[in-house]
Amino acid sequence: MTKTKAVTIGDVAKNAGVSKSTVSQFLNKRYEYMSQSTREKIEKVIEEMNFQPNLFASNLKKQKTKLVGIIVANIRHVLSTEVIRVIEQRLQQEGIQVIICNADDDPVKEIAYIQMLAGRSVDGLIIFPTGTNHAEYSRLINHETPVVFMDRKIEGILVDTVLLDNEAASFLAVSTLVERGRTRIAMLTQPVYHHISPRIERIEGYKKALAFHNSNSDYDYPELLRSNSLSGLKEDLEQLFLSDEKPNGIIAGNDLVLKEVLSFLKEKGISIPNEVAVISIDDVSYADIYQPSLTTIAQPINEMGLKAAGIILSQIQGNHSNVPVVYRFSPELKLRDSC
């Protein structure tokens, strides 16, 4: 993606017919010696030019704050909480504290947190992006803000990104079920709107695996693949198990989906793994103690967290490559009793 030239204070000053120091005073709300007409003129130009004050750039002139902001799309995910713990521990070893913000899958909250952390003069950002704030992400890049994306890749945004090889994860899940004689494998995920990359990639890996293992081209993708809100997944499961050809294998697209699947199967008295085998992409803390114990596809959380921390430290210190890299980590099968 080609970087667009950011509008500067100098551009605003030129178009408003005032000095850069006057614009700076306006931005810092120092109006004591500024006429009302000058204030209105600057305000109008800022609006017309869609000028965004570069808080991070101004902070570069100040001493480092030893703060890094972490904005997580949804802190309910096991990956989010566990990888943040690893990142925090690594950054604290370097004397850096973290501020953790949960966007709760809300792009508006994400923007507010980005701007708030900029105002707090953090040295950099690690973002689990919600996926839709392209203009805000591009602004960070244009302003050369130290930033790392975690878990999700945003199309068209060139930034260092750390995430799982999601296609490999679902391919591994399907292959594991096929090896155990499961012939009708369903996959359930949360919605794929907002182009949330892990969900899209996991679905793609599922389709590729079924195509690889099944010569029958009539394999019923629409029937067996369901993407819905967490509250809507129960209805999808009802439909699948009312079918004449019930699934004998289920892949839960993430840890939150797994809870919905287990709740439904328990409510309906459906036996795991006798009637249906279950695999979750994302390991969970209760996998070993659940009965039967749960087969999962785990993410290498420690390695991923250390990589993200290492990248942001390198960027802050100014010795990181200017060429963004997407770091994909291999999934790990944790075979237990649910399949």
Results as ranks from 00 to 15, higher is better:
G318N: 08
I46P: 07
T4I: 10
I96C: 09
G17T: 03
L55M: 13
H195S: 12
G95V: 06
G156S: 07
K246E: 10
I70F: 03
Y193N: 12
R184D: 09
G119V: 14
I75G: 02
S170R: 06
N319K: 15
E88T: 14
L265W: 04
K234N: 10
Y137H: 06
S24T: 07
L177Q: 09
T132S: 12
K14N: 06
H194A: 09
I279P: 00
L163N: 01
M150W: 07
G124M: 14
N322L: 13
V278A: 05
Q25V: 00
A135K: 03
V68C: 10
K246T: 14
N274K: 09
T65S: 15
I157S: 04
A308S: 09
E223M: 13
E47K: 11
N166P: 12
F171E: 09
L237M: 13
V323S: 07
R182K: 15
K266W: 03
M304S: 03
M150A: 01
F149S: 00
L306A: 06
A112G: 08
A118S: 13
E47R: 10
V78C: 04
R226S: 08
H143A: 11
V108F: 12
I289N: 06
R226C: 10
K334D: 02
Y31T: 12
L335A: 13
Q92A: 02
R120N: 15
L27C: 04
N133M: 01
P331Y: 07
